[in-house]
């Protein structure tokens, strides 16, 4: 699903991009692919917006519980993950830069770095989750953390797990998309004429980063 807008436009014949029969020119085709990707990203933004709305409402209702519960999170892990994700976004942007210059090796390198950092992000997330499970800081009825019994604390952890879980799912999808683009780069496919796949894949990755940029202060810093 995620990759469809990206692939649909670019009929993937190696080395030389081909214009699908129904497009007037390659430019239009790339424009369509990019616009499609933006629309898809808009749907992703609205998807997360639902969670943001839930978060905002419950934070409004339970300000103290949310403030105290957020201090239960490990800020060091969170900060590290933020820096990691921003750096991975940077390498993804560099990949687009190299793709335009047809330096496919460097594209591969940048994307491998990005994927490794994504993996690192997930590993850190795993340790955070494990700690939460250990402390019984779990959603809703499974919440049994004796250190914080204010009403709303369980709602905080419900939202924490839902939003970071959904985000982690997007990280995984992003890794798959980037992996696929990396494979194409290994086949030396990209050049100034044909870098749409790199661009769209990295746009998706930037969105994952963008969402985290908002999730981080919301969850860790209030």
């Amino acid at each position: 699903m995620q990759s469809s807008p990206a692939t649909a436009g670019a009929a993937g014949v190696p080395y030389r991009p081909q214009v699908a029969a129904h497009f007037a020119s390659l430019e239009v085709q790339n424009h369509a692919a990019r616009l499609g990707m933006w629309l898809f990203l808009a749907t992703e933004i609205l998807l997360f917006a639902g969670l943001f709305v839930i978060y905002a409402n419950y934070r409004f209702l339970f300000p103290e519980a949310f403030a105290l519960a957020s201090r239960e999170l490990n800020l060091n892990f969170g900060t590290f993950n933020t820096l990691l994700l921003i750096t991975s976004s940077f390498t993804a942007a560099m990949a687009v830069h190299y793709a335009k210059e047809a330096q496919n090796k460097k594209v591969v390198g940048m994307f491998v770095l990005t994927i490794l950092m994504a993996l690192g992000f997930l590993v850190v997330k795993y340790f955070e989750y494990e700690h939460k499970f250990h402390e019984h800081q779990l959603p809703g009825p499974y919440y049994a953390f004796p250190g914080l019994t204010l009403p709303g604390a369980s709602a905080y952890f419900t939202i924490y797990f839902l939003s970071t879980g959904l985000h982690a799912f997007h990280v995984i999808i992003g890794m798959i998309v980037l992996g696929w683009v990396t494979l194409k780069a290994m086949r030396n496919e990209f050049s100034h004429h044909n870098y749409t796949a790199v661009e769209l894949g990295s746009m998706y990755w930037h969105l994952v980063d963008l969402v985290w940029i908002f999730l981080f202060p919301m969850l860790y810093l209030i």
Binding site: S4, P5, A8, G9, A20, A21, H22
Partner: peptide, 9 residues
Amino acid sequence: AKDVAFPRL
């Protein structure tokens, strides 16, 4: 037009 922008989609 000959088709929609993304026929496979």
